[in-house]
Structures are given as structure tokens and as C-alpha cells.
Design a protein around this nucleic acid. Structure first.
Lengths: 133, 133
DNA sequence: CTTGCTGCAAAGCCTTTGCACCTTA
DNA sequence: TAAGGTGCAAAGGCTTTGCAGCAAG
């Protein structure tokens, strides 16, 4: 890995992501960091986010729709999405049994299966309460 | 659902997706259909794909990176991606046990968990053969 | 005839990138 | 002072959309 410098921009981006109480996107981070460094550019935010992800200090979470999200939580975990409001919460990892992976491998004729993407969708309690109304 | 008309454009788009031996994107479909209907527009292809997906005749498969893919196979199934060449193959569905879903629901404090997204990544046999060389 | 569909082109959204200047180590 | 980072703005990839004319039912 190429050596990376400590700049105030990158530090501010890291701090912003780390203090987020959700899974922010680049725009949110940009707005946050702009308060401290008013002339920072969005391009720099993207570059810092990419660099921090590569270093493992944050996690990049690309979604099928919408912008990439950045996750301050680098521990192993999964996500659940509320289908109504879009809220995303962390949940503990779920293990897929080896024999299931093996059957997937056989069904696909792949040489190996090394990664599984698992994500949940549901209805968060806030939206459930509103719906009930 | 609003009633939808049968146009030759839509029929040609459906036929193109159905005869695809892979998971085509809009551009591929556009190129295919252009042979029959040379002046069809890409916008129409997108609209037809959206309409056919809504009708359940094909399946839309949005990826985190790259274009949306359209799947001629509407039976319940999952996908495995080769991390080297990007090839995508279908695999049979994998059931997540109810008690696992329930523990996810509890961990997230969601009212319910109704959908699970599961996808595999690995190394396809063709790429494995090349790597071995 | 009515209303949805089409072709065209423009715009939109998110992200990356080229470049000249600046700053870190 | 060398090399990576920054700001700016432009471009890029993919998709959607406004509009006026066309065609299916």
C-alpha cells in the first residue's frame, strides 16, 4: 500500500464519519466537514473516503440504488433496511453453514465461494407505529 | 396497475432478454433490439425493461456497481459472481432459518424482517483454470 | 378518438479525474 | 524538495424525463 499523508482534510472526514449516528453518504460528510474547512471540495471528500476505506478505518457500503454509504463501524456486521423510510441499522453477522456454501459451489460449478453478501429488509419500529395509526 | 399496451418495441425487448444466455444490461438489449428496430431509442428500452419488470415477465437486478441487469429467469433463485471475470450464474435459493431472522429482528428492534438479499462471490471454473496456469 | 408509447435530446445523479498549485514528511 | 494531496471544474457512466408526434385499443 502506498504511504498516505495526514492532512487536516482527511482527519476531518474521518472524524465526521466516526461521529455520524447513521451511515452517511459523501454529501453529508461534505456538508459536515465544510463547517470546519469551508473551501474543501467534494472531490477531496471522495478521495479521503476512498483512502480511509482502503486503510480500513471506515467501511464503504455501495448500495444498488442511491449513493455509496460510509460506515463508521468496522466490526463485522450486517445491515437491515427499512423498506418504508430507508433507515439502516447494524445487526450482528450471520454465519452461512459450510455445507450450504458447498452446495452453492456445486450448483454453480464454481471453483470456490469465498464471500457472501447478506442483507435484510423489513419494517422499522417507527414506521410500524405510523402504519398502525 | 395501469393497463399497458403491446408494442413491437416492448415485445422485441422481452424477446431479447428472454433469449439472452446471461444477465444482460440495457445497453446489450438496446444493441440486440436495434437489429430489428433500427431506430428504437435507448430511452424506450429502459421504459420497456421497467414495464416488463413491473409486470413480472423479467426481473430487474440492480447491482452496487455497474449497470442494472435484467434476468430472463423469473423463478426464485440467487446469483453467484466471479470476482475475477464478473461472470454471474444462477444458483438455487437458500433458506435462512426463521430463528435466525427472528434474532436479526430482535437485534435491530425492527417490527418485522420480510426480505433477505443473499448473493455469493467466488471464482468461476474458467478463471480458476487460468489462475492455475 | 383517447391515452399510452415512442424517439430525441437534455438533464440528473453520483462519482471520478486532469491539472496546476500547495503541503507534508 | 520530492511526492502525495487539494481545489476546481469538467467529464463520465448510467438512467430518467419533458415534449411533441405516433399508434394501439
Amino acid at each position: 500500500m502506498a504511504k498516505t499523508r495526514n492532512t487536516k482534510q482527511k482527519a476531518a472526514v474521518l472524524a465526521a464519519v466516526k461521529r455520524a449516528k447513521h451511515h452517511p453518504d459523501a454529501k453529508w460528510v461534505y456538508e459536515q466537514v465544510s463547517r470546519e474547512i469551508p473551501n474543501i471540495s467534494l472531490g477531496t471528500v471522495y478521495r479521503a473516503l476512498a483512502s480511509l476505506s482502503a486503510e480500513g478505518l471506515i467501511r464503504e457500503y455501495r448500495q444498488a440504488d442511491g449513493p455509496a454509504l460510509y460506515d463508521p463501524n468496522i466490526d463485522d456486521h450486517l445491515h437491515i433496511h427499512c423498506s418504508v423510510c430507508g433507515r439502516i441499522e447494524d445487526v450482528p453477522p450471520v454465519e452461512i453453514p459450510q455445507d450450504v456454501l458447498e452446495s452453492v459451489r456445486r450448483a454453480s460449478a464454481f471453483a470456490k465461494v469465498d464471500r457472501v453478501h447478506l442483507e435484510f429488509h423489513g419494517l422499522c419500529s417507527a414506521c410500524a407505529a405510523e402504519t398502525a395509526t
